[in-house]
């Protein structure tokens, strides 16, 4: 390869990969003055290019993004906060260990769901909880189960599922999941086709477990846990990790 070809090859290379720290580039520039000139020209061009490209960004953009994210995360919580007082009142009102359906006409649809959940819980709630101690569902299987129901769950949530199964809901199939947490298991029942009122409501189940029924954008879910577990807060967090494909759920 002659000298002219060397510098041409280098020029071609630098127009594709202008990194001047490349050892081959450094070597050839050291050994040949024509190549050294080619490298200097390339570096001058790249500096000019970078200078032109590096337009000023907008001050405070990152801070605005972080603030907007917090605002977006908080927004769905507002109805929760407004509903909390009513829901807590409802919980306090239910002192009996036996589940009683809500007689409020405005919550008629929800009371139907509560009746179903109570029967469901009595039927196999404790049994599934016990089974989850001995059985471990595969994350991929749980994900597939949920996909089949048009449900999408965050990977963090999926990773916590110790047992998942299909279950009946007031309208079609749903998912009955047991989640592992440091403080014990939590039951999550996702009802993709069962729409409830937007305000969360709470009941004490027949065995003393606290249950929250929560509307999703499409469908609904129930979270059932020991009364000292703050199931409301758990449900609030889980709600952000579950979504139902509205088109599939119709």
């Amino acid at each position: 390869m002659n000298k002219a070809m060397d510098s041409k090859t280098l020029e071609h290379h630098l127009m594709t990969d202008p990194d001047p720290r490349n050892p081959d580039v450094v070597d050839v520039a050291k050994s040949d003055e024509t190549c050294a000139a080619v490298l200097r020209d390339s570096q001058a061009f790249e500096a000019q290019l970078m200078d032109a490209l590096k337009i000023p960004s907008r001050a405070g953009l990152a801070q605005d993004i972080m603030a907007k994210q917090q605002e977006t995360s908080r927004r769905p919580e507002l109805p929760w906060m407004l509903a909390t007082a009513a829901a807590v009142t409802l919980t306090i009102g239910v002192v009996a260990t036996q589940f009683l359906p809500d007689s409020n006409a405005h919550h008629h649809a929800d009371s139907d769901v509560w009746v179903h959940l109570a029967q469901h819980w009595e039927h196999d709630g404790a049994q599934v909880l016990n089974a989850s101690q001995a059985t471990q569902s595969q994350t991929a299987d749980v994900e597939q189960l949920l996909i089949g129901l048009g449900v999408e769950a965050d990977p963090d949530l999926l990773a916590q599922v110790s047992l998942g199964k299909i279950c009946p809901t007031p309208e079609g199939d749903g998912a009955h999941l047991v989640l592992n947490s440091d403080d014990g298991p939590i039951t999550l029942i996702i009802m993709p086709k069962t729409q409830t009122l937007s305000a969360p409501s709470a009941k004490i189940m027949s065995d003393g477990q606290e249950a929250w029924l929560v509307a999703l954008e499409h469908g609904s879910m129930a979270v059932i846990a020991d009364p000292d577990r703050n199931a409301f807060e758990i449900a609030r967090q889980l709600r952000q990790q579950v979504s139902v494909d509205g088109t599939l759920a119709l």
């Binding site: 960004s57 994210q69 963090d156 947490s181 967090q237």
Partner: peptide, 21 residues
């Protein structure tokens, strides 16, 4: 307890916003 790594998630997000916005 903090569940599902929510705090880490927020920290990761803020780091990305600061680094790449």
């Amino acid at each position: 307890p903090v569940m599902f790594g929510k705090f880490d998630r927020k920290k990761r997000f803020d780091t990305l916003a600061r680094l790449y916005s």
